[in-house]
């Protein structure tokens, strides 16, 4: 085996070993890497009352109530949903049917008290006219 060949194998084996170990570590700490939990994950997570975390999903249609600067709504993943209350300034994209991430605590009243609301944008980009066309033909599935 020439030295070049040996160095080639060394780099390949080294990268495989490094890749595998990083993969295993990331897999092990996967639940700490997620930015938020979905309402369904919340049921099995058993996060203690008063601990700060984030939940994410869609703002359930028909549940958004505004009262001054306070809003209440439900975050849903189409399987389960969680009631949320928040007082403060909302991002522009926030509305019913839109993706949302809320940071705060679960309180004893069973309501998630958010201290920060972030709007989640999806991967779709299109001009308003296209959306109007899609809505007209009943092919629109988004918010």
């Amino acid at each position: 085996m020439t030295r070049k060949r040996r160095r080639l194998y060394f780099v390949i084996v080294g990268m495989l070993a490094l890749g595998t170990s990083v993969g295993l570590v990331l897999n092990a700490i996967s639940s700490d890497i997620v930015f938020f939990y979905s309402p369904t994950q919340l049921l099995t997570k058993h996060i203690p009352l008063g601990e700060r975390f984030r939940i994410g999903g869609l703002v359930q249609r028909g549940t958004l109530v505004k009262d001054g600067k306070t809003v209440t709504f439900r975050v849903t993943d189409h399987t389960n949903s969680v009631p949320v209350t928040y007082t403060g300034i909302l991002p522009d994209l926030f509305r019913e049917g839109q993706g949302v991430v809320a940071e705060g605590r679960m309180e004893p009243d069973g309501v998630f008290h958010a201290t920060e609301i972030l709007a989640k944008h999806d991967q779709k980009y299109m001009p308003p006219q296209v959306v109007e066309e899609l809505k007209k033909h009943g092919e629109w599935k988004g918010g």
Binding site: S30, I33, V34, F35, F36, Y37, L118, D122, Q123
Partner: peptide, 9 residues
């Protein structure tokens, strides 16, 4: 993972 960043288009 769940991220705030949107998935690939």
């Amino acid at each position: 993972w769940h991220t705030l960043h949107q998935p690939s288009s």
